[in-house]
Write a protein that binds this DNA or RNA. Structure first.
Lengths: 245, 245
DNA sequence: AAAGGCTGGATTGTCGACAATCCCGTGCCA
DNA sequence: TGGCACGGGATTGTCGACAATCCAGCCTTT
């Protein structure tokens, strides 16, 4: 087997100054997660250890560790001697997740209203202003948020200042939901309404009204779930007559 | 370094018929988790890879995988080039966990009231009857529940029939709480009250009253947290005058 | 004597090879 | 013709060794 340009990942500690060099397994993990979440490795596809090891230019050791970590995040499923595949999640799974998010993020919103610093609230206000200027939102076609601290929900969760809660929501559920978004390319099909709800939640947080923040957040996520369920339903209906589009 | 009786784990596929043989890493993981939760490996102690590999009679490969899995369960902490140590959790962490449990197990109780089968409810009734006959409960000294399906909370969680919720509560928080129980040897210092509360929760589930079940479960956990906090507080007070006992 | 740098030892991270297991296609047999 | 046993091939699980990194103690220097 010839050397087929193993698409090295940034290993040399050259000019990535503030970035961290970490360990090999860490980089492979980050890279693999991106490739999975963004759909480059489609759900259900096999993750051959040898293949991926060559692809990322590392040995099977670090790669196995990366896969193991992705498994704990429920992004891949592994069966003992058969290999690992990218997890594919059914609508029923996603609905379950949304029901749990309703409880958890509702709690996070309440804690955020109680615990967020004034600086954090100011930053969140600025963030929503940016979102409003987004082109897709203006014409009501899409309201897409990139990963991390430019995501409204992400920031509210962090604002709870409860490490356990943050870990559950970010480490355990966040990326799965994001993966699904990429899967069905569903850019949240009610952009302006969603943004308006975000704004009202922020108002509750600003006035330190925990109960209100929780109520609004629960409602917000509940609505998202309902649109999800209804869309899944009509898909199932049209499914019997034709193969979409 | 001589062969010092490497305390083999049950590797031979002889007479453990219904048991699972799984993979080596699986067995090491289960074994290590027990040793940690039960305090055989005290919190903060170092987990040398070579040492443990010899101790369990396996190579470092499977052992690393086991440690990685325990890390994702927050039972051990690992820093890149320094090694892994048994996680030690402060009371503040535990209080956080209890606050999240309040939301999550409350939801689980509600779902359990809605979704549990009659057979499951009957089994749960029988379980509580057994708990009542426990000696430690009779004289109000301790109410200790072993791990797994002989634990009331464990069964209610399972009864929710929500895989995501089960995974969060069991896979992510359950064992940490159990570890702490072993750490401080605190055999839930209000046995009869706790059992009585369990019984009332069961009654709500039996009558399929989800709201009531949620309310009672939240109250139950909230009380547990309060006793926890007050005990931690008086510990901190006596700490300034003498070294306990 | 204290601070700082350096070397030795030990531990973790990584690698390549071997062994065990499973999947699948082939051929035999009813 | 259908079903079942059996290998061949490939993939995963496991192992031992090498390389990189970190930590502790000693020595040097001011």
């Amino acid at each position: 087997m010839a050397e087929i340009a193993p698409d090295k990942l940034p290993a040399e500690p050259d000019a990535d100054a503030p970035s961290e060099m970490k360990t090999l397994a860490d980089r492979v993990f980050a890279r693999l997660q991106d490739d999975i979440v963004q759909g480059l490795l489609p759900p259900g596809s096999k993750l051959g250890e040898t293949e991926l090891a060559n692809r990322y230019g590392v040995s099977r050791g670090p790669l196995r560790e990366a896969i193991r970590r992705l498994e704990s995040r429920k992004l891949v499923e592994r069966v003992p001697h058969a290999g690992a595949r990218v997890a594919l999640l059914k609508e029923s799974d996603l609905v379950e997740i949304y029901r749990v998010r309703e409880a958890l993020e509702g709690m996070a919103a309440r804690l955020a209203a109680e615990n967020m610093t004034d600086a954090e609230i100011a930053g969140l206000t600025e963030l929503l202003a940016q979102h409003e200027r987004q082109p897709g939102v203006q014409d009501d076609t899409e309201y897409f948020q990139r990963e991390g601290d430019v995501d409204f929900h992400y920031r509210v969760i962090q604002g709870s200042h409860n490490a356990t809660l943050i870990d559950l929501l970010i480490g355990e559920m966040y990326h799965r939901v994001r993966m699904y978004r990429y899967q069905v390319a569903t850019a949240a099909n009610r952009p302006q309404k969603a943004l308006a709800e975000h704004r009202r939640i922020l108002e509750a947080i600003e006035s330190r009204d925990g109960e209100m923040a929780e109520l609004l957040m629960r409602r917000h996520i509940s609505r998202a779930r309902q649109t999800l369920e209804s869309r899944a339903l009509e898909e199932k209906n049209s499914e019997t007559t034709d193969i979409h589009d």
